[in-house]
Design a protein around this nucleic acid. Structure first.
Length: 907
RNA sequence: AGGCUUGUAGCACAAUGGUAGUGCAUCGGUCUUAUGUGCCGGAGGUUGUGGGUUCGACUCCUGCCAAGCCUACCA
């Protein structure tokens, strides 16, 4: 019986299971890593080496992590693990962004907190507790991904130390004159008397008056020497008192038209529409003029004795209205920007409750809705109103009171960007950007940037540490702010609310503008982008990490966000970008390339994937995609990645199995003594190392993934591991050929485990523990393999060519199989008839070719065979003879069922 | 509307301006000494689309379409 000899074979033996069961095993492994302090161990190993710092961008502490977080953190772990295994001293301090509106609203929603009734400090304490809960939750989820770092020593923007650090940057910027106060229109809710953030706005339909108003031109023009009126349209008549300009589009064509002996100027393309709406008859088009010719002309305000200019506005369109836009810088974002450009006042004759102020003249005291009526009536009486109708349109409302909101200019704090721009642009050039277009995108963004509004009328954040004097002037004093920073550092920012101004100011502080020693505290807080934007200090320098960091790695939305705010504050305070390299990843879309959303039901949950398939599967997906553009994820893709994972895992398992009796310290064969094909494999592996290290260095993880999987499938599984079985299983344990092959397998296994550890840290560690005579207690303590100069390029060239010839031979064997000449290749007798270059090649092959082709009988002869290829013809016949019960080769004659080779071995 | 980006086989990715390839999936075959495994082979493409430059375009230019990020707009 053939089975009798099975025990005499050296079949693979390993306890490394075929299935990973990652969902269950990974958490146990992570616990173990935590217990043995793996992160610290690796750091200690690199202690004396060069430092490499990836500074973590803080995720917002709210909700479960989503697939985008997973992509981000996994990519970071790839970099960190790779760099660590390269020997760099690579600390990783994770961070969290914990202030801001979403947490305020989460409390209001989930904990039913009534903001109007609760004490400010009490509310802030609740926010803090909630944020820290979220941090802990996300921490667990991030760790589940297999990310190593200082999870017990993170930077959190609500920490007292962090807040203090942030204020010191603010103080620094104050001392450089970069912080100033100005007016800016923002969403304002008269019903709740508060500023609103965009997130607190709901859009509802609202019925509004729609009015067309004619305003008298002051000048007559060379090209049109008659009086005329500028025609504007608005749905907010109450803003007419604040009108300070009319905006036109510079490329839009306008026409002077005559209707019932009155001349109007309107956009040419809107004449027909307006004729209908205004029920005009006999419209006479007189002259056309381009918008840019109108700039600088003036008109009379219809209600006041005021002359205002015609200005150019990029926002002006001909999609509706008249093509001339009523402009009130105190009541609209664009109006405001144009106002800035033209040096207009920011007139805002409306108080916090929505009543007109004295600046509105006769309308003082009227609520805006009433003012609408008054203004319309007056315009009508004065003959400036051409039409009043009512329209229903989508309009912003206060999400709580469901009452309409208005745009209202209010005093805000700004950080000057203008004076930093040149330095920022210079720094952008010095940063290395991945992908390359990042530089362009960033530069464009910075060029367009206006002053940064850093104040928010909220509660949950870092207070702006400014006091007001008795005369209303603000105290912008570096020393004072640093003093506040010191207080925050020990007491936290609640001190701002718990202490009086006197207690907060330095002892004995006086100011000429406050002769009675009375000071008022600012109530605004800092924009959360200022929080996270200063993390290069609070989360980096303060942790003993160098400035600038080596790498920032975030999603492409952060060009506008964190990269930008960090660069601003970095250049402002240090004069240098906080990052040397900036690497961005795309967004995760569904299988069809569409954005994920709850309503579409196409959201993929990383926690679920990890539970079902494992973090290593998720990580391998990250490795497999071109993350620098947008990436897709779908169940099909996860299936594909799982297949790929199984291939890798099983190949490693097979190699481990064939190393069960291999001790490198005793059995290792020197390179020069390896069989030729074993040398070839060593060289191919060496090439893989070179390519892979290079790809890792350039953050090209998908190339690493592809090169490795190709190597595993082609070089190993389909070639080397297939034919070497005839040696590994059959010959004596200590046979030189066998040890030679095992040397390659050992080298290959260890090298692959090393190269794969950034991607599959759980799997490689598990496999490593099953690798006989491994050196360290943990895979992660190994270093990356290094490229070796063997100087044997000729051997590679020769074998690469041979592999092409091999393809032909395999084809011939396949055809013979289709013709039922043979089944498995061991049944075959293979005869080659090479010519020319192939003949030369084969004669140079210093190896057992029959073994490589896994045939029982092999010959090279002169002549012509049945299967024809370039410079090679081939015959495949059924091998005649008897099958050896042990090695299954067909030989001419067996003794007791064994071939000569096996008989010798058994003895 | 503007800035930036992406579009190659079912999927993931390649291709100094020079015959469109690799892996996975699929289909067919084969082994059972890697067995929830291995090996071999086949099929699969007007490179989103219309123009242009060129002897020659996946590659360069341009219009359009689709998708994504960020701005802005809705008076």
């Amino acid at each position: 019986m053939s089975n009798d000899y099975k025990d005499s074979l050296l079949l693979p033996q390993t306890k490394f299971p075929m299935r990973g069961n990652l969902g269950n095993n990974e958490p146990l492994m992570q616990e173990e890593w935590n217990k043995i302090k793996l992160y610290e161990k690796r750091l200690a190993k690199n202690k004396k080496n060069e430092e490499y710092v990836l500074h973590d961008g803080p995720p917002y502490a709210n909700g479960d992590i989503h697939i985008g977080h997973a992509l981000n953190k996994v990519l970071k772990d790839f970099v960190l693990r790779y760099k660590s295994m390269k020997g760099y001293y690579t600390r990783y301090v994770p961070g969290w962004d914990t202030h801001g509106l979403p947490i305020e609203t989460a409390l209001v929603r989930t904990k039913k907190v009534n903001r109007n009734l609760i004490d400010k400090v009490e509310f802030r304490k609740m926010c803090s507790a909630y944020a820290l809960e979220q941090v802990e939750k996300q921490k667990v989820q991030f760790k589940r991904l297999g990310i190593l770092g200082e999870w017990n020593n993170p930077y959190i923007t609500l920490d007292a130390k962090y807040e203090a650090s942030q204020l010191r940057i603010f103080a620094n910027m104050v001392s450089k004159g970069l912080i100033f106060k100005g007016l800016k229109p923002i969403f304002w809710s008269p019903s709740s008397e508060t500023a609103l953030a965009e997130a607190e706005i709901e859009y509802h339909d609202k019925k509004s008056p729609s009015i067309y108003v004619a305003m008298d031109s002051v000048e007559k023009l060379d090209i049109f020497e008659e009086d005329f009126k500028y025609l504007i349209w608005t749905t907010t008549p109450w803003t007419i008192p604040a009108n300070l300009a009319i905006a036109v589009g510079d490329q839009i064509k306008y026409s002077f038209i005559k209707v019932n002996n009155v001349n109007y100027l309107v956009a040419t393309e809107l004449i027909t529409e307006l004729t209908n709406i205004l029920e005009w008859e006999n419209v006479e088009i007189i002259k056309e003029v381009k918008g840019n010719k109108l700039e600088g002309l003036t008109y009379k305000h219809p209600l006041y004795d005021r002359i205002s200019p015609i200005v150019l506005g990029h926002h002006v369109t001909i999609e509706g209205g008249t093509g001339l836009v009523h402009t009130a810088p105190g009541h609209g974002e664009d109006d405001f920007i144009i106002g800035q450009q033209y040096g207009l006042d920011i007139l805002c004759p409306v108080d916090s409750k929505g009543y007109m102020t004295a600046e509105a003249g006769k309308y003082e005291g009227e609520f805006i809705e009433d003012c609408n009526k008054s203004v319309v009536n007056d315009l009508h009486d004065l003959g400036y109103l051409l039409k009043l109708s009512w329209i229903t349109h989508s309009y912003p409302h206060d999400w709580r009171t469901i009452k309409p909101v208005i745009f209202r200019a209010t005093a805000q704090w700004f950080a000057s960007i203008e004076s930093l721009k040149d330095d920022m642009l210079k720094e952008i050039k010095n940063v290395t950007w991945y992908p390359k277009w990042g530089e362009l995108r960033m530069a464009n963004m910075v060029k367009d940037r206006k002053a940064w509004c850093i104040s928010r009328q909220r509660t949950w954040g870092v207070p702006i540490p400014v006091f007001y004097n008795e005369d209303g002037t603000e105290i912008l004093d570096k020393e004072v702010i640093n003093h506040i920073a010191d207080i925050f550092e020990t007491e936290g920012s609640n001190a701002w609310y718990l202490k009086t101004a006197k207690e907060l100011l330095p002892v004995g502080y006086t100011n000429p503008a406050s002769p009675n020693g009375v000071f008022i505290k600012e109530t605004d807080i800092l924009d959360v982008w200022f929080d996270s934007g200063t993390s290069h200090h609070g989360g980096m320098k303060d942790f003993g990490l160098p400035y600038p960091s080596d790498l920032y790695l975030e999603g492409s939305d952060q060009y506008r966000g964190w990269f930008n705010s960090s660069l601003s504050t970095g250049v402002a305070s240090i004069g240098e970008s906080p990052y040397k390299t900036c690497l961005t990843h795309g967004f995760v879309l569904d299988g069809d390339g569409r954005k994920m959303s709850k309503s579409l039901g196409n959201v993929i949950d990383p926690l679920k994937i990890m539970k079902q398939s494992g973090a290593d599967i998720l990580r391998l997906w990250v490795a497999s995609v071109d993350y620098q553009s947008d990436v897709r994820i779908s169940n099909d893709m996860m299936k594909q990645v799982s297949e790929s994972y199984r291939k890798i895992r099983n190949t490693i398992r097979f190699m481990l199995g064939n190393l069960f009796d291999f001790d490198p310290s005793k059995n290792k064969v020197d390179y020069k003594d390896l069989a030729e094909v074993d040398q070839y494999l060593t060289l191919k592996l060496n090439d893989l190392v070179k390519k892979t290290i290079n790809s890792y260095d350039h953050f090209e993880f998908d190339t690493v993934y592809r090169d490795i999987t190709n190597f595993v499938t082609r070089e190993l599984s389909a070639f080397y591991l297939d034919f070497t079985k005839d040696v590994l299983y059959i010959v004596q344990a200590n046979n030189h050929n066998r040890r030679s092959i095992q040397t390659v397998l050992y080298d290959t296994t260890l090298t692959l485990l090393k190269l794969l550890t950034p991607f599959l840290p759980h799997t490689t560690h598990e496999a490593y523990l099953h690798l006989p005579h491994h050196q360290y207690s943990n895979m992660y303590l190994e270093n990356m393999p290094e490229f070796v100069e063997y100087g044997d390029q000729e051997l590679i060239t020769k074998y690469d060519r041979f592999m092409e010839v091999r393809d032909n031979i395999l084809k011939a064997l396949e055809e013979a199989r289709n013709e039922k000449v043979i089944g498995k290749s061991f049944n075959a007798k293979l005869t080659l008839y090479p010519e020319g270059e192939v003949k030369e090649l084969l004669s140079n092959m210093n190896t057992n070719l029959g073994q490589i082709f896994i045939v029982s009988q092999f010959e090279i002869k002169e002549g012509t065979g049945k299967y024809k290829f370039n410079n090679l013809t081939i015959d495949v016949e059924k091998a005649e003879g008897e099958t050896c019960d042990r090695c299954w080769q067909i030989v001419e004659k067996t003794h007791n069922g064994l071939c000569q080779r096996c008989e010798n071995i058994i003895k």
